[in-house]
Amino acid sequence: MTNATEAASSQLRKGVVELAILALLHRGEAYGGEIVDRLAEHPGLAISPGTAYPLLSRLRKSGLITSAWRESPVGPPRKYYRLSPDGEQTFVDMARVWNGMKDDMDTLLGTDAPHD
């Protein structure tokens, strides 16, 4: 990938990863390391902790997620994140936007886009 492609795809991923984190937390609460690991299971969505933590901080500041410490079965307590009621609503809205966008993008890209 060239630098320009890299920058553009990171821009593109930023918004998508935000939705991915909301989707993940919609299924249940998770701690920071767990969020990074579970996104890494999907190579297209994999993000570094350096991307994940600022994003979590921003989501928390905008009131979409909340955080609370919980005892861990192994090691020290962990900080868990969950969706707030606002976050649940935003997730539903964003998922709807995404579904519309996904179909439109598929149509727009058509057969021009290489799949690999």
Partner: peptide, 17 residues
Amino acid sequence: AEQRRDLSSSPSKGTAR
């Protein structure tokens, strides 16, 4: 301080800001 706040209170309580 955050841990004292969360771990002593009810385990399902979150904190919003």
